[in-house]
Each structure stands twice: as C-alpha cells, then as structure tokens.
Design a protein around this nucleic acid. Structure first.
Lengths: 235, 235
DNA sequence: CTGATCCAAACTGTCGACAGTCGTCAATCG
DNA sequence: CGATTGACGACTGTCGACAGTTTGGATCAG
C-alpha cells in the first residue's frame, strides 16, 4: 500500500482558506481592491458566505506574500507600494535573477534551450494581441521557467514570493505598451546570453533587462498614478 | 520582523498570535520539537491555555517561514530538511549574500566599516565562550547587519525569511566546533573584501564563506543525524 | 499467523458568539 | 468658533462547539 506520500489530488478537496487566498490574490492583482483599502473580515466573510476564521487565516498568508499589511486591532489593508519599495522589489529581483541565470548557465543544454524557446514563443503569441494581462503573465512565466530550470526549488519559491509583489507593482500602473518585437527581442537576448556561457555578459543582460522593466514601472508611477495613493504607513 | 509601522510601543499590546509565533519558533529552533513531529492544534492550545484559533493563525505564519509544513486534514508538522533541501537553502543564501555584499560595497564608507567591525567584535566575544546558541545568533547577526547596510528592506526580509530555515539547518545538527580564531578570521576576510571594492573578489569570498558553512552542516548531517528523518516534503 | 475490515477516539475545518478596542461624530466647554 | 470629551457603532481578537475526516487498534476472515 502506498500509505506514505502523495496527497493524491484525485478529488481536489480544497479547503476554504486556499480558496479565499486565491480569491483575494486575484482581486488585489486585478485591482478590484484599491491600494490602501481596508478589508473588513466580516464583510468579506459574509460576502463569500463563510465565517471569519478562514478569511483571517487567508489574510495572514497574503500578508506574508506582501499583498496585505496588517495593523493590530485595525485589520488588513491592501498593500500599496511607494517608489522606494518598488525599487527595492526590483533590486531584489535582480539579485535573484542573476543567481538563477547563472545556475541555468552552468547546466545549460539542448533541453533547457528548447524549453526557453517555447516559452518565448508563447510570449510572442500573446504579445501581438490585446490581452495585457496575458502579456504580463507570459512575461513572468518566462522568468519563472528560468527559475525552475535553475534546479533549486527554494530559489523558485523566493521568486514566487517576490512575483506577487511584482504583479502588484505592475497592477499599480497602466501596462507598458512595448511592441511585440521589442518584448520578444529582449527575451531572446537573455537566451543568447545563457547560450554564450559568459557569466559576466549574463549578469549584464539580466541587469539591463530587469532595469528596463523597473524603469518602465517607475516612469508610469511617476506619471500620475501615484497621486492620492497614500502609502499605508503612518506616524 | 519585516513589517513597517512603528506605532508608539509605549504599551506593548502583543496579541496571542504573535506570542504563539515566538513560542513555536523558539521551540522548534531549540529542538524541543523533533523534526517531522506532528503538532496538535488542540494540544498546543490547551497547553498554552488558549483557544485553537490563534494557534492555527500562528502555524500559518510559521509555514510561510518554512518551519512548519501543513498537510490538509492532517495538521501541521515540524519541517525536516533533507540534504538536497539543505543545499538549496545555502545556494539561495549565496545568491542573496552576493547581492547584499555588492550593494554594501557600492556604498561602503567609514560608518559601515565601523558597524561591521563592532559586529565582528561581538562575534569574537561569544566565540570564546561555550554558549553555542549565542555563537550561531551572533554569526547570523553579522550577516543580517550586512543586509541591513545594503539599504534594501525587501532584501533584508528575504534574508530574514531564509534565516529561519538557516537556523533550522543548524538546529538539525550538532554545532560545529570551529575555533574562535577561525570564526573571527573568516568574517574579517569578508570585511576586507568589502573594503577592497573589488566585486569579483567579494563574490569569491562570499561563495567561499557560505560554502564552508554549508559543507560543515552537510558533513554533520551525513555523520548520522539524518537517519530516521523521513522528510515530510510535499508540494 | 497474516491480512483485510470495522469501529471508536482524536483531530481538523468551520462556524457563530462575546468582549474589548478603535474610529467617528455630536454635544459640551472654554 | 475651535478644541475637548464622551457615547455610539463597527470591527478585531478570542473562544467554545459541532460535523466530517483521519488514525490506530480491535475484530474477524482466510
């Protein structure tokens, strides 16, 4: 008997907490909740037709993901990032991506190349369309693939943790209008760098790639979307 | 921890969740709970004289810190790391420390040097004693100081998140018996590398330093402490 | 004696309720 | 008229309870 292991998701018995986590995550990233907005436990619970306990536990999880902040005796608020925090997120991302790319480079082979090529092609497919959300997700998916290929699950988790804040950064602004060609080209350059086997060059390409993304976000944030977005840190 | 908001801690009104988080964290890291051990919500709650709700919320938080793993409908278990996971933790640590050291190097000045010198001296103070726990904490404190000086709170939080797993790695084994001199010397070398302003050299020193720590842990894990530690890894 | 089956105890997931706290706003006072 | 105080309402922190599930042992067939 396979008594040990395998949660066996035959019948996916999702508990309420996970469902609430997904619901809240999507709601925040789809900007259905405004940054800084207070989330009422009771309100959410009754809205979802459940009790407050699962909502509270879900909120704790979202807090650890950086999507919510809790103020004792006040409740949970949707995280709102200022420019400094946004810079910090991208700075950490650079550190993580450098590491992931280096690890991938060390084990680069035909399979990895194919895998990344496929990912870029999927990115190209949606890049010509008008589904901005899909572009963002495929962009992130490419980078996530790199972290998968790095072969370190813990490193991947660090990226996943950060990616929620990353999406939050992007949610805060209107999406960039890069051309499909430029989006594709910038990712082909990363693959080329990996292929070259030159660590120095790879670092530079990663720094440039992430730097462009960061500047794009910051630029738009400065363009006016920052107004009336008082960050939720007081006194 | 990572959170913001310093709302006048005149009267420290700690809620139960935070207290339970601290209690559990300390219990796990002090090896009062065995790796892989099941934690009964009801048991803990009655033991602490509280209800299960705060215990559950605290456990969720510990899960996000990597100290507990939850199995649906089964409860929470103390995380137990196998050699592969342990390698992953240290690999991520290398990535983070490289980045932190680089950032510190870019803004290196007299104040930073003094701050790190103080930290190393505190490390030396405890290194000659017999309080192994203090040695570990001061060792981690030095590295945490580097992350603070890097000037990126998000990067610091990433280290804090990882540091719990790091402590867990160390908890799993008997502590290394490095001499006080070698402990001090290895950290002086890191400071020297920072002072040199040479990124390449800094990376190498960091890689070496963390690598030694990793090997030390792995070596002792292989020495026999791994037996009967069936990992409870899922997801 | 081995292995499958069944049952009771223990536990998790979820709920509704209560008490204490915080923010708001109107009434009061200088 | 502006500042202060106090009460009201909303909400969080915490608790005890119930139902369905898992676990481990007792029971029974082979």
């Amino acid at each position: 008997m396979p008594s040990d292991a395998y949660p066996a998701p035959f019948v996916i018995q999702r508990n309420l907490v996970d469902q609430v986590v997904d619901y809240l995550t999507e709601s925040i990233l789809a900007a259905r909740f405004a940054p800084g907005e207070r989330l009422s436990e009771a309100g959410l619970a009754s809205e979802l037709g459940i009790s407050r306990a699962p909502v509270r536990e879900a909120a704790r999880l979202l807090e650890s993901r950086g999507l919510l902040v809790s103020r004792p005796r006040r409740g949970f608020f949707v995280r709102s990032l200022d420019v400094a925090e946004l810079n910090d997120v991208f700075d950490l991302r650079i550190g993580l991506e450098r590491h992931a790319f280096e690890r991938v480079m060390l084990r680069f082979d035909e399979d990895i190349e194919q895998s990344l090529k496929q990912q870029i092609e999927r990115l190209c497919d949606v890049a010509s369309g008008h589904d901005e959300s899909a572009k963002i997700e495929e962009d992130i998916a490419f980078h996530r693939r790199v972290f998968e290929l790095a072969g370190n699950p813990r490193l991947l988790r660090a990226f996943d943790d950060l990616s929620f804040e990353l999406r939050l950064c992007i949610t805060l602004i209107t999406r960039t209008h890069d051309t499909p060609e430029s989006i594709a080209a910038s990712h082909w350059r990363l693959l080329d760098a990996l292929r070259s086997g030159d660590p120095e060059r790879c670092r530079e390409e990663v720094d440039y790639h992430i730097g462009v993304a960061r500047d794009s976000v910051i630029e738009r944030l400065a363009d006016g979307h920052n107004s009336a977005n008082h960050p939720n840190n007081h006194q």
